[in-house]
């Protein structure tokens, strides 16, 4: 085999000649990757180009004529009170969900990590909301938080306070939905933190004890917290992306009434309810830019991982 290859390349041109087997593998490689490549163009490539195109027009789905409007969709967006309100709402939502979802999950994970026998039980209990269909659970929350029929307000009344109309007070709409968001994300983040905690070598914690870190707080600050750094970064990034994509709770609980629309819900309304395709495309690009900024660090990390 080898000798044959050598004689062929010696006889051929200066450029290294690929053997028949090599050429066959290249052909196979292209063939195997082809369906995925075609779908990639159809699902990602073309739509992104179309999106960019739409965003520069006043196209409305179903309309016969449209015209090129340049960047005016974007300028319009930044003067559109509804869109700006949606941005502010989403930012408020994220500002509640990210710290509560991350630090709450860290606390739970630290407590669960120390349990030996009951660990599986706690993991299951806290993870259950992650798997549940959010649309159905949002309906349940609506009922739970009902001013007269729900047990939450019954408890508030029993403690001697006035009942709170969580979904009837405009100022409380976003915080209430954020509460549901935290409820759903806690278990997910807890599992990520648990994986991070398990990866910390036991030796390090013991070394810290020998070095004089007597209280759990000292050990947490000396070893656990710094060692969880990458995990925490990741959890913050995924939580913020999830927060910026909030949609289901709005669709079920408020449908954007009383000024409670979020970024994605506003995008849905413009694009699919009002058929303002061109304007919605501009909003989509703004949404995409936010998500890309949030995920850039993570992406570069993955890029490195793929090659090494």
């Amino acid at each position: 085999m080898t000798t044959l290859d050598v004689s062929v390349s010696a006889a051929g041109p200066a450029r290294p000649v690929r053997s028949a087997a090599e050429r066959r593998l290249i052909r196979k490689g292209l063939l195997f990757a082809a369906p995925a490549m075609v779908l990639m163009v159809a699902i990602y490539g073309l739509p992104l180009v179309m999106l960019g195109g739409f965003s520069l027009t006043d196209y409305q789905l179903g309309a016969i004529d449209w015209s090129f409007v340049g960047l005016s969709n974007f300028t319009k967006a930044f003067h559109d009170p509804v869109f700006l309100r949606a941005m502010a709402n989403t930012a408020l939502y994220a500002a509640i969900v990210i710290p509560c979802g991350v630090f709450g999950a860290l606390g739970i994970a630290l407590l669960v990590h120390g349990r030996r026998r009951s660990r599986a039980l706690w993991e299951t209990a806290y993870f259950l909301p992650v798997t549940a269909t959010l649309v159905a659970m949002a309906t349940v929350w609506q009922f739970l938080l009902h001013p007269t029929l729900g047990p939450v307000n019954a408890a508030i009344k029993a403690l001697g306070f006035e009942p709170v109309s969580f979904l009837g007070t405009p100022a409380l709409l976003i915080p209430t939905m954020a509460l549901i968001g935290v409820w759903q994300i806690l278990g997910f983040n807890m599992v990520l933190f648990l994986a991070g905690l398990t990866a910390i070598p036991k030796d390090l914690t013991e070394a810290a004890r020998m070095d004089g870190a007597k209280s759990p707080v000292d050990r947490f600050l000396t070893v656990t917290w710094p060692m969880l750094g990458p995990t925490t970064m990741f959890v913050v990034v995924t939580s913020s992306i999830t927060a910026f994509k909030v949609f289901e709770t709005v669709a079920v609980l408020t449908k954007g009434r009383s000024g409670s629309e979020t970024l994605l819900y506003e995008l849905y309304l413009e694009g699919f309810d009002y058929s303002n395709t061109g304007y919605a495309a501009a909003l989509t690009l703004i949404f995409l830019a936010i998500v890309l900024v949030l995920s850039i660090g993570q992406t570069l990390r993955m890029e490195r991982k793929v090659h090494y």
Binding site: P201, D203, E206, A207, M210, A213, M227
Partner: peptide, 21 residues
Amino acid sequence: ADPSDRNLAMVFQSYALYPHM
């Protein structure tokens, strides 16, 4: 007594150096 109260020093098999320091 707690390990931190014994005034003993230990060298671990894995060395257990704090990687972030």
